[in-house]
Design a protein around this nucleic acid. Structure first.
Lengths: 181, 181
DNA sequence: TATTATCGCCTCACTGCTGTTGCATTTAGC
DNA sequence: GCTAAATGCAACAGCAGTGAGGCGATAATA
């Protein structure tokens, strides 16, 4: 791919992620305009709207996969891995703010890939409990959900937090809650 | 208003809330069909799409306001009020699953009303800290956000939980987190 | 039962989004 | 500098959603 084409593709994906996160009904025209390209250029690269959506999701999944690899969730000590995972996933969530859960239902391939990544975090949560870092009576799916929600909240509703600050906050809340001792 | 008209209106609002929560781009036709009403009936009652949206939000805000009144957030003991609030707000969130935060920006009146309700919960969070139920070093806006997220998660991602069960789970996680002692 | 508010059905016009094509122009890479 | 890829621009067709109006039928209420 030519360099200018790569630049434009990147701009389109980022603009698409941003606009579609604000309003899932955003038109192709709006995405094209925000990315500084002509509407027809978008249609040349992506056969239809769904294809654009899929490409944006792929980009998000690529970033997330890197984070999962770097966090070493299966090997590193639980506290270290958790903190590192949150610290790295917050910027990804900010760069690609799309809600993958509700917008990906028409893309089976991406959906499967997402579930694979999700399973890796689930396994980490399970290991955390097995190693005694989580209470034994906690439902694992609930723990997983809470972690996701805290990450999303810190990433999007507290945009001024740096990733390390966000990680401190999320991990502390996840482990200890907000109640007084 | 005639009785049948009231029935139809109610059906439209509930169907609208459900469908629009799943897909914010749901068409008026789809809402009408789901409510068992003709499309033109919808257009007669609501001048445009925005008006329908506003009406759905109003319905949600009405329900939420009842909950805030009944929970007695300013008077009842903090643990009691918190548990009662969560227990009552979970069904509201389930009945009106729309995300008020992102879909209400074109409705200033509803937006203001939402902020007023939000302020009541904020005040309760502040009281909880002042009375020693929350750690003193916790950011109040963070605490508020976490509570909202936990409620949403319990309401929508764990639909089989009864409201009391959901309240137990949310309150325990909010106060104590998920970490081992 | 009589009245009338409400509804369903049909039709129409309008708009915005999608997707395609042809052609001239620009730009990256050799 | 040359070549081919990529783009911008204009125009077009098709489609879905929106919103309005008329009219006969239906159902609530007095």
């Amino acid at each position: 791919m030519r360099a200018d084409a790569a630049r434009n593709l990147d701009a389109v994906l980022r603009a698409g992620a941003r606009l579609l996160a604000e309003d899932p009904g955003t038109s192709m025209s709006a995405v094209a305009a925000a990315a500084g390209v002509d509407r027809t250029t978008l249609h040349r690269r992506f056969a239809n709207r769904e294809a654009l959506l899929s490409a944006v999701f792929q980009a998000k999944l690529d970033s997330a996969e890197n984070v999962l690899d770097e966090a070493r969730l299966t090997e590193a000590p639980v506290p270290v891995a958790l903190h590192r995972y949150v610290e790295k996933i917050v910027p990804v969530s900010r760069e690609w703010p799309l809600d993958t859960r509700r917008m990906m239902q028409n893309d089976p391939a991406a959906s499967i890939r997402r579930q694979e990544q999700s399973a890796r975090v689930d396994a980490f949560i399970r290991r955390s409990r097995d190693e005694g870092y989580l209470r034994g009576d906690v439902d694992m799916t609930w723990a997983r959900t809470v972690l996701d929600q805290l990450v999303d909240a810190a990433a999007h509703q507290f945009p001024t937090l740096t990733p390390p600050q966000a990680a401190d906050l999320v991990v502390a809340t996840f482990m200890n809650g907000l109640g007084a001792a």
